[in-house]
Design a protein around this nucleic acid. Structure first.
Length: 637
RNA sequence: GCCGAUGUAGCUCAGCCGGCAGAGCAACUGAUUCGUAAUCAGUAGGUCGCCAGUUCGAUUCUGGCCAUCGGCUCCA
């Protein structure tokens, strides 16, 4: 029986029913199979070995495509599980998907795996690869599959099959050599197709991601189409390590986290504080331009107020409390409460709205020890927080204005970001009706303004849904910085009202929002983003003056004075060292400009700026250099 | 909080299967006065994370705690 198979180039070939997808592909293009890992049959992914018996369209999944790489990595995870079960008898397997940049597999084994075990596992993997076992797909009736995995004591697999929806009658398994795994597929044709892989790390991971479940051992690894791509990736990891903000924070003398002071608490050194000051100063001005008013609330507020807001009930675990004169106070984990009280201090008219209260508010949250991470996850941090109280009709334009603000701010720093809409979580306050209103308000604002977003179900704050802006750092990790949260509940709980045009009392809506998020976290991301080489406007030290010999010091002093008088952040480096040494030191400190002062400059009354990138601006009068730096600051370069 | 690893000089890291603690860089002193990524010599610097236990003796072995790192869970 003949059938017609079509390909993406619109070529249609006739083939006998019963040939495999792989055979069909080589009939179409004899070279296409070389880099093929799987195939889409009528847009559904399938193995190259899958048998065709009706008219269909085929589309090769190339190893160099994102999809192909996923399939390759997933197959490598099977090979790793295979190897682990051979090397460590009695290991139970659970799940092993491909992930961004690699794959992992979760195991249960009596003893902890260490990175030293990787050598043995990798060796066994290489054996499996050179044996070139084909990946063989088999379909089993659900009950049979349960029996099969139960007989092999693979409890996790049994649980997975049991939990499949009841309409699933048949499951697929894949075999390579004497290993078998429950798997949807597809897989690469055989283990020999694997050319480049490496195991990277081992870590604990809860079964099914639930902390109530047993903790399994997760081995992370990665794989690529070829050795070179793998090495490029490993080099990239090394480069990323070099721009780790914790390392740069030390090297550039920006901040410390001191064991004696406490975990998750940042101590800013002069240079780190200068960076912070520059960011905050810029940000305050930007807020004032946009109709925000600066306010400030206290660090601690009586516990009853936290009960009123719902924080006590829903956020207590993350809060610190203290006793003063037999009264319990909560140390603020959020800034909204004082802002509510400011609103309530007067009778408000619809003409007053929107009110935009802005505070660089320092908050404390009791984060679990295991999650603390440099500047990115801390216990005390300062948010560039604002609460906007407005009428429901004003929501849309306010949200738009915030989204524009975020876009502008991210542009200044050159960050890419993605937008997510997070909806009602399991633990929440307020009515479902208000939640719907709030969620719709956010969604409509996104849609009206044609902002692309994805939905994060159940990820909202306890008092309202939110729009999250996730920016990407050097390691391509996504960090939540800006967020907009829509809240109908707190105005209700605090009985906030305004007098409308109709003379009646109405309830305002509140938007919580941050632009940079936490200043600490933002700085961490910023350090990695710039690899410590801050643009001129943000550099704690903008230029460093290097003397060639001691006799140039008096003139260098006059240059230093002119620069500092002009508001340029300059440093002296007049030590008795060779120029090359000083340049090296300045280079390591990533200072934007080095001003070399020698005979030529002294005689001509100039400076010779060497730029951080190694280029040279030649001799410039000091005033000209000052103008240049000022222009850079003006342009936020 | 959970799993695993780690904690030695300001920094990066050796070392110790129980017997006086080591290097490079940085710092300090001196010599050198030098033109675009490391001049030479010398000096000083450590309760070997903290607290117990075992031992004649613990930085080393054991236990607890603290902190850090890689993840999980949670989050700005």
């Amino acid at each position: 029986m003949d059938m017609k198979i079509s390909f993406p180039d619109n070529k249609v070939i006739d083939a006998k029913s019963g040939i495999t997808a792989g055979e069909a592909i080589s009939l179409w293009d004899k070279n296409a199979l070389d880099s093929a890992v799987a195939v889409n049959v009528d847009k559904m992914p399938a193995d190259l070995s899958s048998v065709l018996n009706r008219d269909c369209s085929l589309d090769v999944i190339d190893i160099n495509s994102d999809n192909g790489l996923d399939i390759l990595r997933h197959s490598i995870s099977h090979v790793m599980a295979h190897a682990v079960q051979v090397v460590f008898k009695g290991t139970k397997v659970s799940i092993g998907p491909s992930i961004e940049n690699g794959f992992y597999y979760d195991f249960e084994y009596e003893k902890p795996f260490t990175t030293d075990d990787f050598t043995k596992i990798e060796e066994k993997m290489r054996e499996i690869i050179s044996a070139d076992y084909p990946f063989i797909r088999e379909e089993l009736e659900r009950k049979k599959a349960i029996e099969l995995f139960a007989s092999r004591k693979e409890d996790y697999k049994v649980e997975l099959i049991n939990d499949l929806p009841s309409d699933v009658k048949v499951v697929s398994i894949y075999k390579d050599g004497d290993y078998m795994d429950l798997c949807r597929g597809p897989h690469i044709p055989s283990t020999g197709k694997i050319k480049a892989f490496k195991l990277l790390s081992v870590a604990g991971a809860y079964w099914r991601g639930d902390e109530k479940n047993k903790m399994l051992q997760r081995i992370y690894g990665t794989g690529f189409a070829d050795e070179k791509s793998l090495n490029d990736y490993l080099t990239l990891l090394e480069e990323a390590k070099k721009r780790d903000h914790r390392r740069l924070g030390k090297e550039l003398d920006l901040f410390q986290i001191n064991e004696e002071a406490g975990a998750g608490l940042i101590i800013f050194h002069p240079k780190g504080m200068m960076l912070r000051y520059l960011i905050e100063d810029w940000e305050k001005k930007e807020h004032l331009k946009r109709g925000y008013e600066m306010v400030m609330g206290p660090q601690i507020l009586k516990v009853d107020l936290w009960k009123k807001s719902g924080h006590y009930e829903h956020y207590r675990e993350n809060m610190y409390f203290t006793e003063i004169d037999e009264q319990t106070y909560g140390i603020k984990p959020m800034n909204c409460l004082a802002h509510m009280l400011i609103y309530k201090s007067k009778i408000r008219s619809y003409r007053d709205l929107p009110l935009r209260y802005f505070e660089l508010g320092t908050v404390h949250r009791h984060e679990k020890t295991g999650v603390l991470h440099g500047l990115l996850r801390v216990r005390q941090f300062t948010q560039d927080d604002a609460h906007i109280l407005c009428t429901p009709q004003q929501l849309n334009s306010e949200i738009r204005a915030i989204a524009d603000f975020v876009h502008y701010a991210m542009g200044i720093f050159g960050f890419e970001y993605e937008v997510e809409l997070s909806t009602q979580p399991a633990d929440y306050i307020g009515t479902d009706e208000d939640w719907k209103l709030a969620t719709d308000a956010l969604r409509n604002a996104l849609e009206d303004n044609k902002i692309e977003y994805k939905v994060n179900e159940g990820d909202g704050a306890f008092y309202g849904p939110k729009i999250d802006f996730k920016l990407k750092d050097a390691l391509k990790r996504k960090w939540q910085c800006a967020t907009i949260q829509c809240d109908f509940t707190l105005p209700e709980r605090f009985d906030l009202t305004y007098i409308g045009a109709d003379g009646e009392r109405h309830r305002p809506v509140m938007l919580h929002r941050v632009i940079l998020g936490a200043i600490e976290r933002f700085m961490g991301v910023l350090i990695e983003h710039y690899a410590g080489a801050f643009p001129v406007w943000l550099s704690p030290t903008q230029c460093i003056i290097l003397t060639v010999t001691d006799k140039h010091i008096p003139y260098a002093e006059t240059v230093y004075d002119k620069l500092t008088q002009a508001g340029i952040r300059a440093e002296k480096y007049f030590e008795n060292e060779k120029l090359g040494y000083k340049i090296r030191q300045a280079q390591i400190q990533k200072i934007p400009y080095m001003l070399v002062i020698g005979d030529k400059e002294m005689e001509a009354g100039t400076v010779a700026p060497r730029v951080r990138d190694g280029s040279n601006l030649g001799a410039l009068p000091v005033q000209e250099f000052i103008a240049l730096v000022k222009e850079m600051c003006e342009k936020k370069k």
